[in-house]
């Protein structure tokens, strides 16, 4: 089911204000955030975010195409490196 229009897009207020401040001063700086559920609005374009994935911050540079998606969609939380190899007893490609 879609979101009610009355509410507008799900944008984290504090994050939005930070972006606004950056845009007003016409400068760019990566913004650290945990707000993975925050919708990307047009004002975010060309800004860099560091989105938390549960362990570290992933750099996300927002392009026009990303508007309408959420920040978390670009910071994967799971990394699958293949199944355990029975003979060797180690993971393939493990570091």
């Amino acid at each position: 089911m879609g979101r009610s229009l009355k509410k507008g897009p799900a944008v984290n207020e504090r994050l939005y204000r930070k972006v606004e401040a950056l845009v007003n001063e016409n400068r760019k700086a990566p913004i650290r955030t945990w707000a993975r559920a925050c919708m990307i609005v047009p004002e975010f374009v060309n800004q860099t975010f560091q989105v938390h994935n549960g362990r570290q911050f992933v750099d996300v540079f927002v392009t026009e195409d990303m508007v309408g998606h959420r920040l978390g969609e670009f910071a994967p939380t799971r990394f699958f490196r293949g199944h355990t190899n029975k003979k060797e007893g180690i993971k393939r490609g493990a570091k």
Binding site: T63, D65, M66, H69, G72, E73, F74, P76
Partner: peptide, 12 residues
């Protein structure tokens, strides 16, 4: 293709 290009979870 768009989802892939923007490296979204769904594209992956």
């Amino acid at each position: 293709q768009r989802l892939r290009d923007i490296r979204a979870y769904r594209g992956d």
